[in-house]
Amino acid sequence: MHAPATRWKTTTATLLRTAAAALLAAVVATGVSAGPALAAGGDVAWTVRTASNSYGAARSSYSYSVNPGGTISDAMVVANRGPVPLNLSVYAADGFTTDAGQLDLVTRDAKSVAVGAWVRADRASVAVQPGKTVQVPFSVTIPDNATPGDYVGGILTSLTQPDQAQGINVDRRLGIRIKLRVGGELKPTLAIENLHVSYAGTVNPFGTGDATVTYTIHNTGNAALSSTQKVSVSGPFGSLRASASEIPASPELLPGESWKVTVPVHDVAPTVRLAATATLTPMLTDASGSVTPLKPVETTAHGWAVPWTLTVLVVVLIAIVVAAILLSRRNRERRKQREDVRVQEAVEQALRGQTA
């Protein structure tokens, strides 16, 4: 059984123009597959898989636990599935998590400081005849001063071919993931940063609205971690709590990486002041593939949820009541003034009668 290999699908292009040459571009295509990875184009097709040895016979990827200063040896098997001979470059590269939550590898011209620097194949290129396979040994050497924790990268095969129709050179990369856990104290830690809640109300003065909760998951430890997520929004003292629908687990983040999250929460009552709470349960994967949930991490932030329609109605109602009170007071004053005038006139008339 062939182990799943890694085909990174990220595409980058660099265009160079000179007076003496036509358009030149470098395109790198890579990605991840669930079965034996195949790179194919025209008459070119090849696969890569893990070698069968003391580490296993059907591994999906490479996974090692090594102490600082340690060295291990392994191999990758390259098979030519096409009708023409292949001459492939072989090298290692550091990994990172893309904005889509997928593992990718840095390009060959980028500097690798971990897996890409510690993994060395016994050759820089490999020639494979049609229908044949070649085993490529490689070694992993951990520096004495390596920081304990998790590192991810890959070992790659690469073929550059010209595309006459597009006037570019296409670099196809096909490789297998390598996960290293360097011995020492493991500190798996996730942090919730920049938690914020905003509210969109409704024209119904007695209805509910939608809240949007945003935050950043930051891997502040030294272990690769994914996490389950829960988000809720409530009014003062935890009243009228509304919870978000099921939220997908975050991708596995490497140490130092961050992941931005936006969560809608429906049926939120406009209680003037809202409290948004995000809860993460970090998930740690060991060398055997077993996943262990860790102590949850929780953070709360506050925001405003003013029921503007109801507020306007209340203001209008208060204005009407105040206006009615003022009008009533004015009418009473006018009646009093008229009564005072009548009394004054009656007094004056009586005094004139006595004089006469």
Rank of each mutant, 00 (worst) to 15 (best):
S290W: 00
T212V: 08
R120I: 01
G31K: 01
A100F: 06
L159G: 02
N222T: 05
I72Y: 00
T47W: 01
W259F: 13
P162K: 13
V203I: 12
D99Q: 13
L103A: 10
Q135V: 12
S158A: 14
P293F: 08
V113N: 14
E257F: 00
S245N: 15
V128E: 01
A242N: 05
D104G: 09
W118T: 00
Q354P: 00
S125R: 08
V182E: 00
R17M: 09
L327Y: 08
E345G: 00
L156K: 03
V106L: 14
A40T: 15
L313A: 10
L38N: 10
L313H: 11
A200R: 14
R329I: 10
T214V: 02
A278G: 07
R120L: 05
P137V: 11
L86Y: 07
K187A: 11
A324F: 12
E252Q: 15
H2Q: 09
D74A: 13
V233I: 09
A40P: 06
W308H: 04
T157R: 01
V106T: 06
T71L: 06
R329S: 15
P248H: 12
S290E: 09
A165G: 08
A58K: 06
A114H: 04
I178G: 02
S33T: 15
D210Q: 13
M1S: 12
E348D: 15
G175S: 05
R172M: 13
K295F: 07
S125D: 13
F96Q: 11
G167H: 11
A21E: 12
A57I: 05
I155S: 01
M283G: 07
S258Q: 15
V77I: 14
I155W: 02
S226E: 07
A26N: 15
N169W: 06
A51I: 06
K230R: 10
A276E: 01
P137H: 08
V48G: 03
V312L: 14
T271G: 03
V128K: 00
V28N: 10
V136K: 10
I192G: 06
A242V: 06
A211P: 03
V106E: 11
A319R: 08
K230N: 09
N80S: 05
K111D: 12
T277Y: 04
A356D: 11
D122Q: 07
